[in-house]
């Protein structure tokens, strides 16, 4: 007993280190990527419809505001991580023009295919690259992009700090990162209302439209487990970003974090 006693906390610590959250559940870190992949494989086809339905179209305004704050100009190289069905990429493609380029990266092949088909159907082909990539280990050279955006993707990453470090590496000096993500509502009343909507209405919507309540239950849980505004800002700074700030949108339901690499 006494022999085992000292090793127990070590084992517990090791187990703790190897676990991560998947919604409210704790899973092995190695499992999270495939579990998230299952979620997105399941919702990819109905992703856009569900986004419009769940947010009553407001997600389009959040994304538009992100693009406004990106300051994209002709000739810029933009990386849209977790770009999903290409909402941001479509806009960036027109803004950077033929002299610039946009790379749509997503770890999930199903989402990437839906995005690629959608953008090609809209005639956007000339300056867009599609890359299946893990945000934690981006397969791009150092100092390569002028702008990196990540909309509603960071909370699904297993090691968020690794992703921010990786983004910092691929950004050019003077470049900026914008992370649009669900966050913590600033008012108590809104928070209660939002909880009720997330845990009672959202899964039912998912069941009704996408025939998948579990994925939308995960969505609600993963939002609650995501770092709050100040914590994420601290993670930006830890990765090396400067002039970090964030703006709460719709009462803090969503926050846009911004940081520069100098």
């Amino acid at each position: 007993m006494s022999d085992n006693a000292p090793s127990t906390p070590v084992k517990a610590a090791q187990t703790e280190q190897e676990k991560t959250d998947f919604g409210f559940s704790q899973v092995e870190k190695t499992q999270k990527a495939s579990l998230v992949a299952n979620v997105f494989d399941s919702v990819a086809a109905k992703y856009d419809i569900m986004n419009d339905f769940m947010s009553m179209g407001v997600h389009r305004l959040w994304k538009r505001y992100t693009i406004d704050c990106a300051g994209a100009r002709a000739g810029h190289k933009v990386l849209d991580i977790a770009g999903g069905t290409g909402d941001l990429t479509a806009k960036f493609s027109r803004l950077v023009g033929p002299t610039g380029s946009v790379t749509l990266a997503d770890i999930n092949l199903s989402m990437l295919k839906v995005g690629r088909d959608k953008l090609r159907d809209r005639g956007l082909i000339s300056n867009i690259d599609y890359v299946q990539a893990d945000a934690e280990a981006l397969p791009f050279p150092d100092n390569h992009f002028d702008i990196v955006t990540m909309a509603f993707g960071l909370r699904n990453v297993t090691e968020k700090q690794n992703a921010l470090n990786s983004i910092f590496r691929v950004l050019k000096p003077g470049g900026r990162l914008l992370v649009l993500e669900f966050s913590k509502p600033t008012s108590e009343q809104l928070s209660k209302l939002y909880d009720m909507y997330s845990f009672h209405v959202l899964p039912k919507m998912g069941q009704l439209v996408a025939n998948d309540a579990d994925s939308y239950q995960y969505l609600a849980e993963s939002i609650r487990m995501h770092p709050d505004q100040e914590t994420l800002k601290g993670m930006f700074e830890q990765a090396g970003f400067e002039q970090c700030d964030y703006q709460n949108l719709t009462g803090g339901i969503v926050a846009l974090h911004r940081g520069y690499k100098f």
Partner: peptide, 10 residues
Amino acid sequence: MPASALLTAT
């Protein structure tokens, strides 16, 4: 909701 985004979208 950013009012500027609503204006520009419209």
